[in-house]
Design a protein around this nucleic acid. Sequence first.
DNA 1: TGACACTATGTCATATGTGACATATAGTAA
DNA 2: TTACTATATGTCACATATGACATAGTGTCA
Lengths: 111, 111
Amino acid sequence: MKKSKRAKLTAAGWAVGSVQDFLGLSAADAALIELKLSLSRSLRDRRQRRGLSQVELAKRLRSSQSRVAKMEAGDPSVSMDLLVSSLLVLGASADELAKAIRSGVGRHAAA
Amino acid sequence: MKKSKRAKLTAAGWAVGSVQDFLGLSAADAALIELKLSLSRSLRDRRQRRGLSQVELAKRLRSSQSRVAKMEAGDPSVSMDLLVSSLLVLGASADELAKAIRSGVGRHAAA
DNA sequence: TGACACTATGTCATATGTGACATATAGTAA
DNA sequence: TTACTATATGTCACATATGACATAGTGTCA
């Protein structure tokens, strides 16, 4: 569960999807990161489609602009719970969530 | 984001799906809870299908038996990150994750 | 009965996430 | 230039999640 590895990755500007197990990153770890990045992108898409600023979305989420920015940036400090609940607040459907999931989880070997 | 509400719900033995907004629970909050419960069930299914005990799974996750039990029980103290990463470690595919997502997120009005 | 394997539940120290704030950067319009 | 809006990033106090441990319950096999 080394979350610090993810910090290293994104801090270094890596396209995480392309380096499945650069460093000690397991396939499952990499898949989780890709999944969250995919949710991040979905969030930004949805927000922009609705013509909302980060400040406005933050208000709806009872959060802050800086946290919304971090969500959209795929910051390691953002949980999947927060990403998903934000998408739900923006009215994301099951289909849309599932779609983001599918595009975020790469193929990986069974453990 | 009142997580305490969820504790009340499950503590009271409610089938969360049937009470979309019992108390002050918003549709998005309820959807998130249902989603996590769905992931919990998927986790137990997968583990049992593999013939693993909670202790054995805990070892693979570098976690503990008690936390695995809580994951499967839908305990409010368990994050979606942990649920999903556990499913990934058990080799869950994108399809399977998406399926769990779909069955966990009820229809709800756009916000 | 006892002994064993499995699961559930409560607690706690520590790790991680969160909202809020300050501040920086980028773009636009006057 | 200034002023304004939107977004990014660092920090921090506080909240929540985590693994570990103890312990209780449940079933099975002698």
